[in-house]
């Protein structure tokens, strides 16, 4: 087994022979040393509203400089970005953008934050960490949208540099994770707890897919777990599914299903539950105490913000989130 290495970044823990590439397609064993194939090579670079990530309780109405490289640690059959997430780095066009240039560009475009997103930031861990370190020095915040499929040690190191994370909790059964995503649920739940312990601002996204993860009983169970383990202040985004990639035969999520999910979250005690990917009042933020409108949104556009110093303007209650 001379020259064999084991990657310990994500729970897959690939064992790689010489010149073998990991399951995420982004890490290679060369003569007994593991290298990243995507460092400084983003295949997607854009300036987005922070609401698109989605973050609803983190610097609303600001711009997020967003980057991604090819690759992913999972293989979800519904992936919206499968052209890059399920591709090898050599198969997609990329820019050469070293960490310092990412930060400079973020500053140039007036972005308050950098978001590591689109594919799965764990696969470009080294690039993300180096960029985040520089960004922090210059007062630019760091956020990620991730599937949370990462081991505890690397996550704790990363969490010290992160200001916010939006984690996809794709379902609340091991069966869904293994059949639809090629992963496991338990490590994702563990990652959520670690991020909470490390005081990273946390939001959760749950894509509701007809027949696969829309069982109201399971959604209630999931929300109960969130309240018990992460607290009632973690916002949850129930996102509408559209037929895509390998799940083209399923219909888009009916609005009623999303409303049921929203109610399940509220019944479980979650204070901030949202519906995404569809225009509705459930995109707005309402004060958990007086129910007055705090942030009005239409899609990614913020219409009004009724917060002063992070407090509700009507009743003065401090609203959980990062507001400045």
């Amino acid at each position: 087994m001379a020259g064999t290495v084991q990657c310990e970044l994500c729970p897959t823990e690939c064992v790689l022979e010489n010149y073998q590439v990991g399951g995420c397609r982004t890490r290679i064993n060369k003569d007994g040393t593991l290298y990243s194939l995507v460092y400084g090579k983003p295949c997607a670079v854009a300036v987005d509203p922070i609401e698109k990530k989605p973050f609803y309780h983190f610097l609303p109405a600001t711009k997020a400089f967003s980057i991604a490289t090819a690759g992913c640690v999972l293989g979800c059959k519904f992936c919206q970005n499968w052209q890059i997430s399920q591709a090898s780095p050599e198969d997609v066009d990329h820019q050469n953008l070293p960490p310092a240039d990412v930060v400079r560009q973020a500053m140039f475009y007036g972005c308050r934050s950098i978001t590591y997103t689109y594919t799965e930031p764990t696969v470009f861990y080294e690039y993300m960490v180096d960029t985040a370190q520089i960004a922090r020095q210059f007062g630019v915040r760091n956020t990620m949208h991730s599937c949370g499929y990462i081991n505890e040690k690397p996550l704790r190191k990363l969490a010290k540099l992160l200001d916010a994370a939006d984690i996809d909790l794709k379902a609340f059964t091991e069966d869904f994770y293994s059949r639809i995503c090629g992963g496991r649920l338990k490590p994702v739940l563990d990652a959520l707890v670690v991020l909470r312990q490390e005081n990273v601002w946390l939001e959760i996204t749950n894509l509701v897919i007809p027949t696969l993860n829309d069982d109201p009983k399971k959604i209630r169970e999931m929300c109960g777990w969130i309240v018990k383990n992460l607290g009632p202040d973690v916002p949850i985004h129930f996102s509408r599914f559209f037929p895509y990639y390998k799940l083209k035969d399923l219909p888009p999520t009916p609005f009623e299903t999303l409303k049921d999910a929203l109610k399940a979250a509220q019944d479980a005690g979650m204070r901030y539950a949202y519906i995404g990917n569809i225009r509705t009042e459930a995109e707005n933020t309402y004060c958990h105490r007086c129910r007055k409108l705090l942030i009005e949104r239409i899609g990614y556009h913020v219409q009004q913000i009724n917060l002063t110093g992070g407090k509700c303007r009507s009743c003065g209650t401090a609203i959980p989130g990062v507001w400045s």
């Binding site: 290495v5 310990e8 970044l9 060369k30 290298y35 861990y125 080294e126 040690k153």
Partner: peptide
């Protein structure tokens, strides 16, 4: 950065050693 890019002098192929792995 601009000058390096224009002159094509940016070293991009330098491999980056990964974090979090071990030899078997």
């Amino acid at each position: 950065s601009l000058v390096l890019n224009k002159l094509g002098l940016r070293r991009t192929e330098r491999p980056k050693e990964a974090l979090f792995w071990r030899r078997k």
